[in-house]
Design a protein around this nucleic acid. Structure first.
Length: 411
RNA sequence: GCCCGGGUAGGGUAGCGGUCAUCCUCUGGGACUGUGGAUCCCAGGAGCCGGGUUCGAGUCCCGGUCCGGGCCCCA
């Protein structure tokens, strides 16, 4: 009986893994160049960690289960909450700011689509401890640099949830949340209906004005007219900083990121082509979560990149190491192995025959693995102290003394 | 949870009610036993699962499942 992969999961073959590792390497290197260091948290956590900020509703969308001790656990659906939990548990007295990055698989019980899987990978960073605009600037810049380096065609949109919160400050938290939800979904009909039903149409024009603003710094001036008392200094500083750093972006005050815990600048990055409906490849912003997990009120900023989506549209290709096949005639296997070992020690990728096949088949195999050279350890020549080195591209073959094989390969 | 389209060897395909199946690729072996990529030969391997219609089903119908796409959702 044949066992299939569970729905929404994937197998990665060597070619694809090489590509993914290559992309991962770029992300790591850039994050590290900004001083971020890798962390790792458990694959599963107490379910409560994820319901505490998002409500019981999300249990439907995550892999939740009871263990044999009757504990409620869940496979992590994201990393921000676990990282904050870790911070509160063991890093709260470390010198700030803290710069962490992670690359981990996450799990969500959702219907798979293009760029959406039940097991997927996120690469993200958290910059913990700063409430300055400089933190937002750094994090946005980092996300931007990574995607640029990977050659992705994308759009960066930046908003600030403070604006809408200021505009709606006299409404109940419940109503604010609902309105934000509609805005996040860009469901303006429902928004209008909701405002009408709740006798809140006074807000309609201002909301509409705010969320339809898109562009560079100048939209801040327009927003000021709607919210004369709001302090735009912060978002203005971020926008100016990004312009100075030559980061392309749009301000878009309709970005509210659905989540209640975002407090300031929020941003989303969309792929311009190649991903269909699931084209968001990165999301982030400033938030305050630590108090929910028993810590103090620590401002943080972070983002998460949808690794699989990026991998799907990213064109980097892996550089393959040069391969060598050491083939031999019958009886020469162990001599061939010793030669192979010497080459491997010097860092070459060396294949030897484990099928006890004839020389012909061994060379044929060298061909299928795309070997650059074949070293032929043949009995008659070996007795004379030489082996044969064949260039698999030109077909040229020459005798090389056993003792100088390494030199022959420039090692 | 919902809607649409799919599912034939490892990969890509043909047949679309009637001798359990086409071709390509692939894998293994071979064409004087010490030499690759060409050619040729041989071998291997398949109609997602379950039910129904029918004398007879990859081929029609229903359910499930998985894939793709779109909703919902997206912490």
């Amino acid at each position: 009986m044949r066992i299939e992969r569970p729905k929404g999961t994937r197998d990665f073959l060597p070619d694809e893994m090489e590509r993914r590792r290559e992309i991962e390497k770029v992300m790591r290197q850039i994050a590290e160049s900004y001083g971020y260091r890798e962390i790792s948290t458990p694959t599963f956590e107490h379910l409560e960690l994820f319901t505490i900020k998002s409500g019981e509703g999300i249990v439907e969308e995550i892999y939740a289960f009871k263990d044999k001790g009757d504990r409620d656990l869940a496979l992590r659906p994201e990393l921000t909450a676990p990282v904050m939990r870790m911070f509160v548990n063991e890093c709260s007295v470390m010198p700030r700011p803290l710069r962490f990055y992670y690359f981990s698989n996450c799990f969500r019980y959702e219907n798979p689509q293009k760029g959406r899987y039940r097991e997927f990978w996120q690469f993200g960073v958290e910059l913990i401890g700063s409430g300055s605009y400089l933190a937002d600037l750094e994090v946005i810049l980092l996300a931007y640099r990574i995607l640029k380096e990977l050659g992705i065609n994308f759009e960066l949109n930046i908003g600030h949830v403070g604006l809408l919160r200021e505009l709606l400050k006299d409404l109940s938290e419940e109503r604010v949340r609902k309105i934000m939800r509609f805005i996040d979904k860009k469901d303006f009909e429902s928004l209008e209906r909701f405002l009408e039903e709740n006798d809140l149409m006074d807000y309609y024009d201002d909301i509409k004005t705010l969320i339809s603003m898109k562009g560079r710094k100048e939209v801040i001036e327009n927003a000021r007219e709607v919210l004369p008392d709001f302090d735009f200094g912060y978002i203005e500083s971020v926008a100016m900083g990004l312009e100075r750093l030559e980061v392309d972006f749009n301000l878009d005050f309709s970005i509210v990121r659905g989540l209640d815990y975002y407090t300031g600048v929020v941003f989303e990055i969309y792929a311009v082509e190649g991903l269909g409906a699931q084209n968001q490849i990165c999301g982030g912003g400033s938030y305050r979560l630590t108090h929910l997990f028993g810590g103090g009120d620590v401002p943080s900023t972070g983002f998460a990149i949808g690794f699989d989506r990026v991998a799907e549209i990213c064109s980097v290709k892996s550089e393959k190491a040069e391969r060598i096949v050491v083939a031999c005639t019958p009886g020469m296997e162990l001599n061939a192995l010793r030669i192979a070992e010497n080459l491997r020690e010097k860092g070459l990728v060396v294949y030897t025959d484990v099928m006890e096949r004839g020389l012909k088949k061994q060379l044929s195999f060298a061909n299928t693995v795309n070997a650059r050279f074949a070293v032929i350890v043949a009995e008659r020549e070996y007795e004379k102290g030489v082996v044969l080195v064949k260039d698999m591209e030109s077909g040229e073959q020459r005798e090389v003394p056993k003792s100088s094989i390494l030199e022959y390969f420039g090692l």
